[in-house]
């Protein structure tokens, strides 16, 4: 998040002072944000801060509510895992496409450091992988939450 802010802020400053912005100044913060969203997705699950319907749930007894929460955790573990798989298929399929703004920067980075693998940073694959990553992280978060709920005794 801090990085996103810094890149956008300085790139726009650059645009108004030097008159030119760097080509990766738009794509990089977008991709960073997508990863940020995926982190936040899991973090928000851990802290129960996702937007959900609570009106019906609130009217139920504590026992039923506990069961519903457990159901929600299990459903989320499964969804997260399925999303991770689908996201993997997605990234594998089109990951070779060049990320236009990042290509030259990545190529330059690769040739200056001599690490050929860095060329990969100029392709969309690593960024598209965010969705798979997010799915996996969400599954883990929900699993942790499930364990936490199972190990704390039901409040009656």
């Amino acid at each position: 998040m801090a990085l996103v802010f810094v890149v956008i802020f300085f790139n726009s400053l650059r645009r108004y002072t030097v008159g030119r912005s760097v080509t990766w100044g738009e794509e990089l913060p977008i991709y960073l944000t997508i990863y940020g969203v995926m982190f936040g997705l899991a973090l928000a699950y851990l802290t129960d801060s996702h937007i959900r319907f609570t009106v019906l749930v609130d009217t139920l007894s504590a026992r039923v509510r506990r069961i519903l929460f457990l159901f929600s955790d299990v459903a989320t573990v499964i969804t997260g895992a399925a999303l991770a798989y689908a996201g993997h298929v997605f990234a594998m399929r089109r990951g070779d496409v060049t990320a236009s703004g990042l290509k030259s920067a990545a190529d330059a980075l690769a040739s200056s450091t001599g690490i050929e693998a860095l060329v990969w940073l100029g392709r969309v694959g690593p960024y598209q992988y965010a969705i798979a990553f997010g799915g996996a992280l969400l599954a883990v978060a929900a699993a942790l939450k499930l364990v936490e709920r199972l190990t704390t005794p039901a409040e009656v």
Binding site: R15, G19, R20, S21, T23, E26, S100, G101
Partner: peptide
């Protein structure tokens, strides 16, 4: 040559990028 996404083109032309 300056590669720019299509959606950013009007903005790039008007600001002289």
């Amino acid at each position: 040559p300056t590669p720019i996404a299509w959606t950013e083109l009007p903005n790039a032309l008007s600001t002289g990028v």
